[in-house]
Design a protein around this nucleic acid. Structure first.
Lengths: 243, 243
DNA sequence: TACCCACACTTGTATTAGAGTTGTATACAT
DNA sequence: ATGTATACAACTCTAATACAAGTGTGGGTA
């Protein structure tokens, strides 16, 4: 029985990659160097590398080289899109359905954080391909939201509509059971697990301008968080959407 | 292994910026000075600087120069405060009860991530003031854990025991219903909502050295995430759909 | 004093060129 | 079917150079 060489080479390379011999974010030796090292032709090396690419371990860019996939700390921030953008890219159709759009007197806890009693409250349901995946309520000080219409918030994310420079946010994530209203809107059984999030967004001057509460059905959604440990500097951190 | 020069230069500059070597009110040396210092062309220096700009560390104005971007976070915001941290901060006495401490053959998904079949698995129950609040299972490559004892992992957090430089982690957070074993250990009803987290911790060289799964009872736990200079676009993301 | 302007220096952008890399195809040997 | 050898296209990286455009400084002028 003949042994197929590029299978063995793929095994060897897989070992090196997953053992960290080739660090993430850096580049593997070129196909030519490897063909010299293993004493085989470039074509054979490529076949081995393509196996690893199919497995998602490595990737390549023409003219650049092969590199360890995953953890690409290099290009993240500029391209980070909203979850809706990413869904659009993967062929799904995200939609926002506005359930409520009212100027009103805020509940006490909200009024406390926003430092004003008069707010705009927007409740909406986010869907992907018709299936709901998020139930969101946003509170915003009324004076900042005077110029907003129901059509505005249906069309654009809230963050693009406010004409103030946003600086940062603090967010809590917890698990809870769905109540009756949530269960009905999200098409899930009453009492099934949901992710319950609250986010408080501030301007650069420190004023809190947005409080939002999100409910996600637990069976379809998941948060991904990157935790920079030793290197605070590479901290485009916070929340990130990965595949 | 080949390295791209501007990657290394970006790393060096990132170090200087975040260590405060340049932090003084105004600026970095000009591109020309740097290209002389590193012995590379201005284009290469620019590529490195543009990486740092994408990360939000520095910025530039034409005709003026490069400067450290506002709000330099010294201590990692964007770091995730775990429940244990919160409890410690609020004066509670956290305890760890080790349920299992075994060297064994890893399940296939874990073996794949850790790139080794031989692992140490530690299951423990975290309590605060006697009440359980977290059920944790940690897998670690056996060769890295040889020197660890059951007493060690009971006393200290796992990441303090490993003698390798940790770089960061990626974590997923989802909601689920408690199964029978979890319900019993956590003193909660069967099927009640829990936070289910998986954390993958890597060394600075990119090797994965820890995989841990955490189960938190939903009624008393919550994650807090700070988004330091949150671009508006990040805000609604960090969430992904699972199938 | 108040204003204007030239000058040096900076970043932003574009072009050229060379070497090195992956992507792809073809022909040939085992 | 598998592997080798070769050639070429397309792309990236880096260097070198040039120029446009913005900033800060200082000196001259009214």
């Amino acid at each position: 029985m003949r042994t197929i060489r590029y299978h063995g080479i793929a095994d060897e390379l897989r070992m090196r990659v997953s053992s960290g011999a080739y660090a993430a974010g850096r580049v593997l030796p070129s196909e030519s160097e490897m063909s010299a090292e293993f004493g085989v032709s470039r074509v054979t090396i490529r076949k081995a590398l393509e196996i690893l690419r199919d497995e998602g371990l490595v990737d390549a860019r023409q003219g650049f080289g092969w590199f360890v996939a995953g953890k690409q700390v290099r290009q993240p921030l500029g391209r980070l899109a909203t979850i809706e953008d990413q869904m659009r890219d993967s062929g799904m159709q995200p939609e926002r359905r506005i359930l409520e759009f009212v100027f009103e007197k805020a509940p006490r806890d909200i009024a406390l954080v926003l430092a004003t009693p008069h707010v705009l409250r927007v409740s909406r349901l986010n869907t992907a391909d018709g299936e709901p995946f998020a139930l969101v309520t946003v509170w915003c000080p009324a004076d900042l939201a005077q110029h907003l219409s129901r059509a505005d918030v249906e069309r654009s994310p809230f963050y693009e509509l406010l004409e103030v420079p946003l600086s940062g946010a603090s967010q809590t994530i917890g698990a809870d059971a769905a109540n009756t209203a949530e269960a009905e809107l999200l098409h899930i059984p009453l009492g099934s697990p949901v992710l319950r999030c609250e986010r408080i967004t501030s301007t650069t001057s420190g004023q809190v301008v947005l409080v939002s509460r999100h409910v996600f059905p637990g069976h379809r959604t998941e948060f991904v968080v990157d935790l920079p440990y030793a290197q605070p500097s590479i901290a485009p951190s916070g929340l990130r959407l990965v595949d």
